[in-house]
């Protein structure tokens, strides 16, 4: 398995899952990401990433209740694990550190 590093897109997906809380299933994640990033996010990509995140242990999944929509097929809902949370926090910390190292001058005039 590749290291436990979080890729950029993986981080986005993980964040979305955390944000959506109980409602995080593939299509919802897709829609949410599309909305926030402004680029079209393909289901196939999201699906693969979700699968990988689960393998890495950052998310857990479980099937929901059957409903009348989507041909009666159940949805697979994802929830973030504590490991996932820790990774997110770590990623954020690293960024913050880096951000704090940037002198104000750099962004002046933007």
């Amino acid at each position: 398995m590749k290291g436990t590093n979080l890729g950029e897109f993986e981080e986005l997906v993980l964040l979305t899952i955390a944000a959506l809380m109980e409602e995080a299933y593939s299509v919802a994640v897709c829609d949410e990401l599309t909305k926030h990033t402004g680029r079209e996010v393909k289901l196939g990509v999201v699906h693969a990433v979700l699968n990988r995140l689960e393998e890495k242990g950052y998310v857990k999944s479980g099937l929901g209740e059957a409903t009348n929509v989507r041909g009666g097929r159940r949805k697979r809902f994802y929830t973030i694990t504590s490991g996932g949370k820790a990774t997110l926090l770590k990623a954020r910390e690293q960024r913050d550190q880096l951000w704090s190292m940037i002198p104000d001058v750099v962004f002046k005039g933007i």
């Binding site: 289901l43 041909g71 097929r73």
Partner: peptide
């Protein structure tokens, strides 16, 4: 199941 559901 869920993949099929997504596609639907």
């Amino acid at each position: 199941e869920d993949l099929q559901g997504d596609l639907l």
